[in-house]
Amino acid sequence: MTATAHRGRTAAAALTPPSRWRTLLRSHWAMPVVLAVTLLATYLWIRSRQLDDIERRSLNADALMRMLGEHLRLTALTTVVVVTVAVGTGILLTRPALRWIAPAATALANIGQATPAIGLLVLLSIWLGIGSTTALIGLVAYALLPVLQNTIVGLNQVDRKLVEAGRGIGMSPLAVLTRVELPLALPVILAGIRTALVLAVGVATLATFINAGGLGELIVTGIKLQRAPVLVCGAILTAALALLLDWLGGVIADLFRPRGLG
């Protein structure tokens, strides 16, 4: 009697939604704080220094916002293209009719990632010319694999029995995909997207070599002209951006984790 009452209570607790936000806050508060402190410290450090002409040309609000904007734009576009292409391809490659191609497709995506990023960008620029389109293509080729692979793995790890149960009770193939397979594969797919996002932020620093802008400009300028503040500022901003997006990915993953799993 007491056992059933107890079970009833825990079940009710698990069903009340507000606890979700509280857990979210509890497990994700640290990263924004760390980032804010780091950025503030960097800002104060730069302010405390006497900047020369060269440094001032890079380290001013207008230039920083432009580079940050370019970087974000490149990253966002990459992510959108990668998600569309890789998730779509992943879905196709897990359909029974096309399953046999999957190994070949993953191998191909592997080439994209195994090639050193800078080599990939330079090769592409010889072929397609320099500029942001070329950078975008390079980044997409580079970030495709984790999403493609995780989509395939995520869909394949969905219990075959559930897929068959879905078909067995009369759900259309599309309904089985959208209501059973994708929701249950979502955590794994999101993890892949998160990895791709962080990769894209990092590799986007190389875009400056083919004249596509971004925060890489600061780093390259800092190295070439031996200006430590510029170099450090570029590195910290890139790292902070990568960490911030990774954090955001984590929050989203927790928010969209299907109920009823573990």
């Binding site: 149960a165 009770i169 009369g170 929701p183 299907p258 009823g260 799993l261």
Partner: peptide, 16 residues
């Protein structure tokens, strides 16, 4: 299949 009920072991319920 919509005209044929289908029951499997452990119910085969969608966990989510």
């Amino acid at each position: 299949r919509r005209r044929i009920g289908y029951v499997i072991q452990q119910g085969g319920l969608f966990p989510h």
